[in-house]
Computed example of a mutant assay.
Amino acid sequence: MPRDDRRSSDERRLFRGATTRLDVPRDWRRTFVPRPTYDADAFGRLSERIARFLGTGQFLVYMTATILFWVAWNIFAPESVRFDQYPFIFLTLALSLQASYAAPLILLAQNRQEARDRVQYERDRDVDARTRADMEFLAREMASLRMAVGEVATRDYLRSELRSLLADLDANRREDGRV
């Protein structure tokens, strides 16, 4: 009996068109409104740009100038145009909001950097392993060449052998000439 025949009609409807791949989640129900999607890499790149800017002296200067202007305006401006009185609650709220968005953006940028560092570490480890294997191969080759060179006759050895042969020939000539 086929497997689909044992399922109820509801189950067959749910599993109709379901993928058999394990790395793709099943879509259990139909949606009439499409789910919002976003490009995670584009959002990550934007968060890295923001995090880089938040870590600069330029940001600190802009933030300090803004806060000083805010405080000075709300202290020295005419009462009718002040928008945040002395405890500066609106300023505190704005700074808290900025910090609540900055922290996750900085963490996201750090996570992306950590992922890049991990990939670079893997590449460096692979290059190191290949380099180590190449060095071991070259060391074995050098050792075999040294052993081979050790068995090869050198120029000095050949000269000494030729001299001894010449000496033997001279000795043989002398003996032949005497006899």
Rank of each mutant, 00 (worst) to 15 (best):
61 V>R: 06
72 A>P: 00
21 R>D: 06
5 D>F: 11
157 Y>M: 14
6 R>G: 10
49 R>M: 08
176 D>W: 12
10 D>M: 11
50 I>Q: 03
90 F>T: 07
163 R>G: 13
138 L>W: 00
61 V>C: 02
2 P>I: 07
65 A>T: 11
36 P>I: 07
144 S>Y: 00
31 T>R: 09
150 G>Y: 04
48 E>L: 06
109 A>Q: 04
52 R>M: 09
64 T>P: 02
111 N>T: 14
109 A>F: 01
94 A>L: 07
29 R>C: 14
169 L>T: 14
126 D>F: 15
133 A>D: 02
166 L>M: 15
137 F>N: 09
23 D>Y: 03
31 T>Y: 04
167 A>V: 12
12 R>P: 02
107 L>G: 09
131 T>N: 13
82 R>A: 02
154 T>F: 02
18 A>Y: 04
106 I>T: 05
137 F>W: 05
97 L>D: 06
107 L>H: 12
101 Y>F: 13
44 G>I: 01
37 T>V: 08
26 R>L: 07
39 D>W: 02
27 D>Y: 04
151 E>W: 12
125 R>Q: 08
78 P>K: 12
70 W>V: 01
25 P>L: 04
161 E>W: 10
46 L>M: 04
58 Q>L: 03
106 I>P: 01
47 S>M: 05
30 R>G: 10
17 G>V: 02
119 V>L: 08
25 P>F: 00
25 P>Q: 02
122 E>N: 08
26 R>D: 05
59 F>K: 01
54 L>R: 01
134 D>K: 08
11 E>Q: 15
3 R>G: 00
109 A>D: 02
109 A>M: 03
35 R>S: 13
128 D>Y: 00
128 D>T: 08
163 R>W: 11
121 Y>E: 08
81 V>A: 10
61 V>S: 01
44 G>T: 07
158 L>G: 09
111 N>A: 15
98 Q>S: 11
166 L>G: 15
97 L>Q: 00
4 D>K: 07
153 A>M: 15
25 P>H: 02
100 S>Q: 13
116 R>S: 00
66 T>N: 13
150 G>V: 09
52 R>F: 09
143 A>Y: 05
38 Y>H: 12
166 L>C: 15
70 W>R: 01
83 F>D: 05
78 P>R: 10
47 S>E: 01
162 L>D: 14
49 R>Y: 10
112 R>H: 08
156 D>E: 15
125 R>L: 05
166 L>N: 15
10 D>C: 09
124 D>N: 07
2 P>S: 13
138 L>G: 00
9 S>R: 06
168 D>H: 08
42 A>G: 13
173 R>N: 11
60 L>E: 13
119 V>F: 03
4 D>M: 10
172 N>Q: 15
103 A>S: 06
155 R>M: 15
56 T>K: 06
118 R>D: 12
26 R>M: 06
62 Y>G: 06
112 R>V: 04
163 R>M: 14
27 D>K: 10
109 A>G: 04
62 Y>I: 11
27 D>T: 12
93 L>S: 11
179 V>D: 10
112 R>S: 05
129 A>V: 02
43 F>V: 11
174 R>Q: 15
110 Q>H: 14
109 A>K: 03
22 L>W: 02
94 A>F: 04
24 V>S: 03
29 R>Y: 15
123 R>Y: 01
89 I>Q: 05
7 R>W: 06
38 Y>K: 08
132 R>Y: 02
117 D>T: 11
114 E>H: 06
